[in-house]
Design a protein around this nucleic acid. Sequence first.
DNA 1: CGCTGTCAAGAGCGGTGCTCTCTATTTTGT
DNA 2: ACAAAATAGAGAGCACCGCTCTTGACAGCG
Lengths: 223, 223
Amino acid sequence: MTATRTARERARAELTQEIKDEARRQLAEVGAHGLSLRAVARELGMVSSAIYRYFPSRDRLLTDLIVDAYNAIGEAAEKADPGTGDLRERWLAIWLGTRDWARAHPHEYALIYGSPIPGYAAPQETVVPASRVALALVKVLTHTELRAVDGEVPPELRAQAEALTKVLGIIAGPETVARLLMAWTQLFGAISFDLFGQYVGSVDPADAFFAHSAKRMAEFVGL
Amino acid sequence: MTATRTARERARAELTQEIKDEARRQLAEVGAHGLSLRAVARELGMVSSAIYRYFPSRDRLLTDLIVDAYNAIGEAAEKADPGTGDLRERWLAIWLGTRDWARAHPHEYALIYGSPIPGYAAPQETVVPASRVALALVKVLTHTELRAVDGEVPPELRAQAEALTKVLGIIAGPETVARLLMAWTQLFGAISFDLFGQYVGSVDPADAFFAHSAKRMAEFVGL
DNA sequence: CGCTGTCAAGAGCGGTGCTCTCTATTTTGT
DNA sequence: ACAAAATAGAGAGCACCGCTCTTGACAGCG
């Protein structure tokens, strides 16, 4: 266990990365459905059985790709946030940055926000990366007093909202938390509808509608 | 071409239905990904090649299942609407009815609102069934004056909204149409997040949150 | 009856995930 | 320095998949 790895360890890390890169390329061509370890191996010039030294199963490779995708879209959201300035502009920037990443990586987006893969249960390690976009949105709201939004909240939802308030560390009433969840739903609902073709025939292209939605939802949560 | 079919024709129609039913059962077990014509045939006691007499390809069977699913969720939405009475209650009923169908048929829901299937292009025949839920929502609004909602709408979105106004035959300003689209997005965004597990850790179970969202979106569109 | 169209059956092609064994090479402990 | 242990790739093989092709049995109808 030295600081400088052995030649074998370096080769292994490199090849592992190459396998993931090639898998992502195939994901863009044939989707998660058609992702084939044999094809990845073939493209990399290795024999099919050899790839199992690096990923013990197709599912394990998928999990790694999923975690990478959650981190990538989360990082895109965080980087889109200027961090200072007008809060509504920061909010909009995060929405646009998130959508831009999704449009640039539609198959990776579908991997994380599309249909669940049957027989595949997302391991625990995906939950933290999965929350990064939502946390970026919440961060915009933490240092300001939100315009109060009114509305009755049923007890069941109130309890869930209050539990979330503690986790997120924000000062907001249950109705505001509920609206924040709706905004989060709207963000990914709109991206999914756009990418999955449901807007064809109504708002296609959806750029103007998406930016409009972002602004309306900013108002909606009290920003 | 007589009204009463021959024995052959009746047997064929029955077997076609049996194949679709068995395919739906398998969809629930292994998803669209794992749907296998051979397995369907095996389960029905026929040899694998025989099934191609009924469905020329796996994709053709998928298309039929997709059209059936769109029609089923559309019919669920329409039947949930009492048709008369308080408009906000009708709106809520449609939201709940749509979600109920989705929760009862999660794999069929994923088939139509989940990730697009790579290499599969939805044929034209799917677009009319796909719009039935949205039309059920619009129908609630057609015989009332909506509370005016204000807001600036950029020209690009305004043009799309006005084109939609004509198609839908409703009397509503561009901002209202945009909000209607947002409500439609919210409806399926929330159902997808619920079914696909994104609400785990925040609002799970999501029943209270979903009903709350429905009511807030009713207000939001001016109902 | 015999023709025509429909049907199930079976073999076969090239692909898949995955396992096993065998051999070559590198790393590690003494 | 050298042998033992760990790791690497290669290849064969299993059971499955979608799909195609051919063959032989049967029903409907003139």
